[in-house]
Amino acid sequence: MAAAALVLLVASPLAAREPGQASQWLERLGPALNMTSYRGVFVYARGDRVHSMRIAHRFVDGMVHERLVLQDGGDGEIVRKGMNVVCVLPQQGEVRLDQVIPSGPFAEAYANELVPVSRWYKAELVGEDRVAGYDSVIIALTAKDPHRYNHRLWLEKTSGLLVKSHVGEPGGKVLENFQFTSLEITDDLAESEFEIQTKGREVTHNLDDVPAPQPVQSSVMNGWDLGWRPPGFVPAAAPRSGPGRAVAFSDGVAAFSVFVELEGAVRMPVGASRIGATTVYMRELDAGNARFLVTVVGEVPPTTARKVAESVRVDDALALHSDDS
């Protein structure tokens, strides 16, 4: 049904379906996400879940200041100043954000890699729309192979800020929906808008200072390797996040993470699961004397996730083993 709405939205194509124009917009996307100052409320829906969050965002002295406040469910907010992240967490929910927030260091933005996007997606300027009161252009990214989803991005015309996005299947079904419902692009943001206001347990983390994303090579996959990955997906983050041996891969638009861990006490079912555009694929892998759990999580089709998971080879089971024990 959302697909129908989508079709309606873009039913008035511009005369200019220029790929060149589309890529110019895409080049603005990365910087705009960080360097635009704005406040607003956005809604995020995937699968059956809808969440809204209030956000204030500005760029001061080369640092991102950002405050997000949950608008439904429990109280909670996330304040980020550069690499310093403070979370006040909702009491409910079985998984605490603090288990995962300190996962730095990460590449600040591989949004830069949006440049070669046209190799894997057909980028088109397909129309104009109005989102949260702002005129925006609609960029359609159509996957050139079946390994990734289609994306549709609404970029505000003057700033290039992403104000709405869809992730969908080739058939047109929208799996994930992000949209500002109210937005004010302004430099007039008070200091107080970036201060924690919710009372509760505060968790502070410093994402380690890593000045620039280093080109990550296969060496980051300590003890294991991928026999196959969809073309265009490159390692994007160092695997220092928590206890998992996660490596993230991105093609500049979509990303998936691969986890290879010794199978612990908890036995997990194998197979694929989906929520919105996110697929989780798990499988067991015997190597040496140990059994590993391989998990692929990402905004990729289940078939891609499976193929990636099935291609994982544990090169040095012992190394992995001794590190964990």
Binding site: H57, S103, E108, A236, S257, T295, G298
Partner: peptide
């Protein structure tokens, strides 16, 4: 935990910010 770690990769790593 896997889901969250991946989400984290996306938010900071991918520069997707609020998404």
């Amino acid at each position: 935990r896997y889901l969250l770690e991946h989400a984290q990769h996306n938010s900071v790593g991918a520069g997707r910010g609020s998404v």
